[in-house]
Simulated assay, not measured.
Amino acid sequence: MTASPAPLSRSVQAAPARLTVEDIGISFGGVKAVDGVSFTARTGEVLSIIGPNGAGKTTLFNLVSGVYQPKAGKVTLGDEAVTGLSPDRLATRGLSRTFQNLQVFFRMTARENVMVGRHLKERRGLLSHLLALPSTGRQNRESAEVADRLLARVGLSDYADTPAASMPYGALKRLEIARALAAKPEVLLLDEPAAGCNAVETEEIEKLVRAIADEGVAMVLVEHDMKLVMRISDKILVLDQGRMLAEGTGEQIRTNPKVIEAYLGTHGTREANLALD
């Protein structure tokens, strides 16, 4: 039986729902990879999705972000039903995401990578670029200025002209977030944003995620770092074998016997306790 959701803080509880997922599911070869999962992400909220390997976390992200077509259920952005829309159409409606594995353009500079994320917001088409119209030049300058502001926002101003291939791993994780922000999302999905990062880089990611949420973006994370999850999350959703095992605050999740048995174990529980105590 799924645990009852925890009461949220008054400010988050009163915030409007930006992303609503209802009973979503998909099967591969007769195996239910995601089965009847539901959750809501609100404006300014950090929702973390955790669970053992193979629990369906990234598959759930792929369903929500349009990479996979769900066989059941419904996805709503704000008041608009968007189930099954492609990732580019979802991006124009306010949903952006990053991926578990780095998806940067290594031959481009940091600035150019972020500018790619802004193309959906640009007003000039291919013909304008081919004809090298003055309006296109103005637009490119505007995009470069926006990219520079976003690089500053994620602490990467010094890397603006640096090829991505020459940047440290932790900086590349923040670069992906900057590029996702260029599309002006209202909902941002981050797939293991701290994976492979050292303690300093993880702390930078933590501060950045919290700052973005505080600016009104609904943040949804898949993450294995339990210390990070417990410190940053307003709400935590636990998956196991494609189904919801529990949902609640960090305090409720770390003491849930089913979660401890299926996922946290002794070591994970210790990390969760250290993060909250």
Score class of each variant (00 low, 15 high):
Leu133Lys: 15
Gly137Glu: 10
Arg138Lys: 15
Arg138Leu: 08
Arg138Asp: 05
Gln139His: 03
Gln139Asn: 07
Arg141His: 09
Ser143Tyr: 00
Arg149Ile: 06
Arg153Gln: 14
Leu156Asn: 10
Asp158Ile: 10
Thr162Ser: 09
Ala165Phe: 00
Met167Ala: 03
Lys173Arg: 15
Leu175Pro: 00
Leu175Tyr: 02
Ala182Thr: 11
Ala182His: 11
Asp191Val: 09
Glu192Gln: 13
Glu192Lys: 09
Pro193Ser: 09
Pro193Tyr: 08
Ala195Ser: 15
Gly196Lys: 11
Leu208Tyr: 03
Val209Asn: 12
Arg210Gln: 13
Ile212Asp: 01
Ala213Glu: 03
Asp214His: 11
Glu215Thr: 11
Met219Gly: 04
Leu221Lys: 13
Glu223Phe: 12
Asp225Tyr: 02
Asp225Thr: 02
Met226Ser: 01
Met230Tyr: 13
Arg231Met: 05
Arg231Trp: 02
Asp234Phe: 03
Gln241Asp: 09
Gln241Met: 02
Ala246Leu: 08
Thr249Glu: 07
Glu251Ile: 12
Gln252Gly: 14
Gln252Glu: 15
Arg254Cys: 10
Asn256Arg: 04
Asn256Gly: 00
Pro257Thr: 05
Ile260Arg: 03
Ile260Trp: 06
Tyr263Ile: 04
Tyr263Thr: 06
Thr266Met: 04
His267Gln: 10
His267Lys: 10
His267Ile: 07
Gly268Leu: 08
Thr269Gly: 10
Glu271Phe: 11
Asn273His: 14
Ala275Phe: 08
Leu276Gln: 09
